[in-house]
């Protein structure tokens, strides 16, 4: 008889079965789950790491992006006290993207160029890092905008008063598609995120900036969301540019 009781009591009770006890058992700590999702082996789904770097992915869902961007803005809005604080935070959020976008886009350019990676062309298409100011600005205005938003920016201008200031104009920034700014913070432009991306590209290319900021263009009837990205380059960048110009076109 005792032998029979020991055999029946042998299997331990399932951890969640606390029907017959007064105390709720504490669950053992769960095993660490890596946050990176990876499809189970045997499935044919590809992760982002399996994709070719040189081929850009086809279109991304705008509402999905809007949802993420919305959450980003809500988060920073809740954490910050002023309009300039939100803009700085959005700018910082975009910065690392810019640093990586420079490398990625240059890599793609090189892979797409007919000469492959060894191509020695001068401008852009070879995958060489832009070394002159105008090359960089055209890279941002054309390649970066196409890579991020599928189209070029609408204008590229130099400031008439300060020669270290350049302006990139976007009539309808994609990131602002669903964003309406309430009246009490009408100065806020959420394209500060894109300004951060641009700043990251400039810094990574070796053109230090005093900051890139996004501003609303005022008095615009046709494009109510028209945004001007103001790029202020550092003095030493301008001096170097002068020197290169004097030395015969980047020799």
């Amino acid at each position: 008889m005792p032998a029979a009781t020991t055999t029946t009591a042998a299997p331990p009770p399932p951890p969640l079965d606390f029907k017959n006890s007064d105390t709720i058992p504490v669950l053992p700590p769960s095993k660490h789950q890596p946050s990176l999702r990876y499809p189970s082996s045997g499935s044919h789904r590809k992760t982002i790491y399996d994709r070719s770097l040189s081929r850009p992915p086809s279109a991304t869902s705008l509402p999905a992006f809007a949802y993420l961007f919305n959450t980003l803005i809500t988060y920073h809005h809740a954490k910050s006290g002023s309009v300039s604080d939100i803009e700085t935070r959005l700018n910082r959020a975009g910065y690392p993207i810019g640093v990586k976008m420079l490398d990625l886009l240059l890599y793609r350019q090189a892979a797409a160029a007919p000469g492959g990676f060894g191509g020695a062309g001068k401008s852009g298409a070879s995958g060489a890092r832009p070394t002159r100011l105008l090359e960089l600005l055209q890279f941002v205005h054309g390649t970066l905008w196409r890579g991020l938003f599928g189209r070029q920016a609408d204008a590229l201008e130099q400031s008439t008063t300060k020669k270290n200031e350049y302006m990139i104009v976007d009539n309808e920034p994609v990131v602002n598609t669903y964003v309406t700014i309430p009246r009490e913070m009408s100065q806020l432009n959420c394209a500060a995120f894109v300004a951060g991306v641009v700043e990251g590209v400039c810094d990574a290319a070796g053109f230090g900036t005093e900051g890139v900021s996004a501003h609303w263009a005022e008095g615009e009837e046709m494009w109510p969301g028209k945004t001007i990205f103001l790029l202020r380059f550092r003095e030493e960048v301008m001096e170097r540019e002068e020197g290169l110009k004097a030395g015969g076109g980047g020799g």
Partner: peptide
Amino acid sequence: GEFVMKNPFYSLEMPVRVEKFDR
């Protein structure tokens, strides 16, 4: 759904003052 619910500055149940929605 597009311009009010996807707007980060709209708080639920509150009066809708969203310029893009109006437009």
